[in-house]
């Protein structure tokens, strides 16, 4: 039950962070491409920038966890998939999804 409380808290906290992060992400895209922007110019800005790495790594982690916890609730309610084993599997799926995003953020920083 404590684990379930913590999953719920994780989803609320990631939701609050995502609300902010999605806004920053979209506004940045709109501002950045207004005058036309090439991939090379994007990379020039993100490469070596710890701030963008941290922001997008955090974004990916929050999105991965938030989505997995949400899917866990849908699977429990609609398919009756419940149990500790499945909870661990959902956590794994969330972290794996996050890892793909973090890898992309690392690529922009380091690549």
């Amino acid at each position: 039950m404590r684990g379930q409380l913590h999953l719920w808290i994780a989803q609320r906290v990631t939701a609050a962070f995502l609300a902010l992060a999605v806004a920053v992400h979209l506004v940045t895209i709109i501002i950045a491409v207004r005058g036309g922007l090439s991939a090379a110019e994007i990379l020039a800005r993100t490469r070596g920038s710890e701030a963008w790495l941290l922001f997008y790594a955090g974004f990916a982690l929050a999105a991965g966890l938030h989505a997995a916890i949400g899917l866990r609730a849908i699977a429990a309610e609609w398919l009756g998939w419940r149990g500790r084993g499945l909870d661990i599997a959902w956590l794994g799926i969330g972290l794996l999804t996050a890892l793909f995003g973090i890898r992309a953020a690392w690529g922009l920083y380091h690549g």
Partner: peptide, 12 residues
């Protein structure tokens, strides 16, 4: 609060 916490409780 322990009794009403979790998937069978308020968090659902």
């Amino acid at each position: 609060l322990d009794a009403v916490s979790g998937d069978a409780g308020c968090h659902s």
